[in-house]
Structures are given as structure tokens and as C-alpha cells.
Amino acid sequence: MQTTPVFGLSRPTFGSHLRALWMITLNNWKHHWRYPLNAISDLLQPLVWLAPVYFMGQAFSVNGKAEGFAGYAGTDDYMSYIILGTALANFIMAVFWGMGYSLKWDMDGGVLEANWMTPLPRPLMLVGRTFSNLATTTLTSLGMILVASLIWGFHPTGNALAAVLTVIPLLIGLYGFGFAFAALVMILREANTLVDSGSFLVQILSGANFPVNVLPKWLLPVSLILPLTYGFDAVRGWLLKTRTLLPLNVEIIILVVSMFLMIFIGLRAFYALERRVRQKGTVGQY
């Protein structure tokens, strides 16, 4: 009489899921660091964008003080404001390019079908990618802040712990959106223009580089719809003591609610994609 193996991969357990998650994360982590030039480029590129912003700030500042800027932001420390915004914007870029293209890259590499044949919940592939992407982007952003602070100075005067705690729902919500975006990119296949202009637009509208109250009246409502706007605003409020759009506790509530909403939308979009490609049999096509 034959017995069915209880601990085989065909009958996965919670433990085997955790092991798989660890392996997916490790795989992506290794993949990132195997291209060290790209990793260095990730660190240096934001600095290249910061340099002209610094000189532009100088063109409007007297004795290093951006008085005009203080009228909008509540601080004349323009560079700290920009450096923090750029570090957070790194995560937007990571989600749009890294998460957005994750399924597409697996598809192009011809491993998506094989990965999806394994007895794992399919969103787990993206969760693993999220962990490694978060870790690499955090390291890159911290490195960028360190280098930028040596060049231009970075002066956080507020509550760092509160700022870090505020970042958590912001990032979880952002990566939840990444699930939906990955599904969209996979369906569109050639999405460079969408990703390029989309990431740039989101950065502008969420106020990565300036207080959003300088936006024209017709554009401001779009900015205020984005949860990211409140995330950037709240983190700056905690760390740099800038003037916030709404009271900080209200902004945090918005972030937490949007986090659950984004996870829900992201998973729904992902399952819809999975159903669609299973019905059409197009996982291997690109």
C-alpha cells in the first residue's frame, strides 16, 4: 500500500513557504549585487540630480538661507528638504522600475512559467522581490544621504524614530501599488514610456522636490489625492520640523488607511492578471 508523502513540496506548509520566501529574497539580493556598477550608479545618480538643484537653490538664497522657500516650507534648510525627498523618491523609482518590471523580466528570462509551476502562492514571488528591493533601496538611500550630507550638509533636527515609523506604512502602501503596477507592465509588455513618465510624474505630484502648495490650482487636487504626498510631508514634518499640509496625526491615519487599500488593490490586480494569463495561456509569450 502506497502512502502519500506528507512533507513533499506538493503539499507545502507554512514553513516551506517561509523557506521559499527567504530563497526568493536571497536570489534577488544576489542578483542586485552581482552588477556592482549598477549598484554604484544607483547611489551616484541621485547625487547628479541633486547638484543642479543645489546651485539653483544658491541662485535664490542669501548667505545660504532660502528665505523665499521658508515661506512655503517652514524651513530655510533647502538642501536637507531636498536630500530627504530624493532619498524617499528612490523608493518610488525602485517600485516603478524594480517591482514594475519584475514579472516582465522573469517573463523575458523565460523563468516565469517554471516559477509559477512550483506549489507556492504566486504573490510570494513579488513579496520576496519586495523584501530584497526594500533592503537594497534602503542601503542605497542611506549611502546617498551620507555622501550628500558630506557635500551639502544634512541637518535633521526632529524626531528620527517617529519619521522611521511613518515611513513604514508609506513604503508598504507603495509596494502594494507595485504589485498592481507589475501586473499592468506584464500585460502591456512594452511599457518604458509609461514607467519613465509615470515615475517622474508621481515624483513631481507627491512633492519630492518642493512643497506641493506651489502647484497650480488645477494640479494641486491631483497631488492631494496621492497618499505619497502625505507620506513625504509627514516624514519631513517629523525630521525637519517643516510646516505640514495637515496635522501629523491626520496624515498618519491617511497613510495607514491607504496602506491597506493599496495592498488590497495590488493583490486584486495581481490575481486578475494571473487568471487572465492562465485563461489565455500567454505566460510564455513576450
Binding site: G57, S61, F69, A70, A73, Y78, F210
Partner: peptide, 12 residues
């Protein structure tokens, strides 16, 4: 991105 930054730097 530079234009809105310049609006902010110019001040209200």
C-alpha cells in the same frame, strides 16, 4: 520639476 522648485525658492 525645476519650475515648481523655482516657484518654491522664490517664495509666496
Amino acid at each position: 520639476v525645476y519650475i515648481f522648485s523655482s516657484f518654491a525658492l522664490a517664495g509666496p
